[in-house]
Design a protein around this nucleic acid. Structure first.
Lengths: 188, 188
DNA sequence: CGACAAGTTGAACTCTGTCAATCCGGGTGG
DNA sequence: CCACCCGGATTGACAGAGTTCAACTTGTCG
């Protein structure tokens, strides 16, 4: 955070969280990045990164110098369009997160979103290991970690998911979708 | 909303609100658009507008066919960069709005932001007329309109602002900034 | 096996939303 | 010119979801 914006980064393996620390010292988590995700385009405007990026496990990234990339806009105009598309998608996700939704809706949307993302990466959409701590989930959903625990507990009671530490098993995806239905998809 | 994405629009005069109706029929306001603001780039990804745009007063806009614009990316690569910048800025604003901030922080940030925007347009940063209803402010900040009223009342008691209908006078900008300090600027 | 971080559970509290009543200002029509 | 309306704004009372604080449990790693 605060460094001069020179590169965009693509996650190659592992996962990251994007976070900021506000003036009261509280951490806000803006999203999680998984393989294929692009990191850093929120810095294009200001020329400075304004989020901290923290690896959640052993991970690797690939740097893309923005100067070189933007020069390519001339030769490959689709490149700019594609970049605009990715930003547009990210924007929609933020939009979703900004809505006033209940803790259950948020958690359901989060779980469904993670399932989809793992699925898109070729992993199981049913059983997967969350790379982040409960408190990180909570901060990304704007909830207290205790609330996330309690909602998960309710989901377990209702046989929607089962949980073993950070391993999640989706037992009833349609129910999950139904709970999350008011919210759009949470892609990042 | 729902129409095929063909044009971006620039506000020439007046003001607009961008809103969606969720499945429960409740309106969410995503932002306000004032002269110079660009409308519609959140549709780049999906190819469909997914917000309703409503004028708040007699207003005029200028349509920019996106097909023509994106062709220009080749000739004028700065154009794509500029567009990316604007989206990046919008992204940052959404980020801000997604955080968990108190009603006071949200309202203070909103007022400071409006003051800055009017100022940027050549109007007074001290006294200005809000074009939108209290309920619109509330919906854009994810609050109930009553809460906005109450927070404004508290600000008046503390001599931070004075209010006469939709006319706002900033009495103590530094205090306002202080209250809003945990939040980033709310530009859109 | 012990220690420390992460996660869970319980109880009290607080902020904000909801509901309802009232107030205000501007436009309308007699 | 005034009485009347009507939507927006304000104010009050109350309830509920979620936070906070604290204690307790679990699991992981040295």
């Amino acid at each position: 955070m605060g460094d001069r914006f020179d590169n965009l980064y693509v996650v190659r393996s592992g996962s990251f969280k994007g976070s900021t620390i506000d003036l009261d010292g509280r951490e806000h988590i803006l999203g999680f990045f998984m393989p294929g995700d692009l990191i850093g385009f929120d810095a294009i405007q200001t020329g400075k990164y304004y989020t901290d990026i923290v690896a959640l496990q052993k991970s690797s990234i690939c740097a893309i110098p923005y100067a070189g990339l933007s020069r390519l806009f001339t030769e490959i105009p689709q490149l700019a369009s594609r970049l605009l598309q990715m930003m547009s998608k990210s924007l929609a996700s933020r939009e979703t997160l900004a809505g006033d939704y209940s803790a259950e809706e948020r958690c359901a949307s989060f779980l469904a979103g993670m399932s989809d993302r793992f699925n898109g990466l070729g992993y199981s959409a049913i059983v997967f290991n969350l790379p982040m701590a409960r408190s990180d989930i909570a901060k990304s959903l704007r909830l207290a970690s205790e609330t996330v625990t309690r909602v998960f507990a309710r989901f377990i009671d209702d046989c929607v998911i089962s949980v073993k530490g950070r391993e999640i098993t989706i037992l009833d995806r349609s129910r999950l979708d139904h709970i999350a239905s008011r919210m759009g998809p949470l892609s990042i």
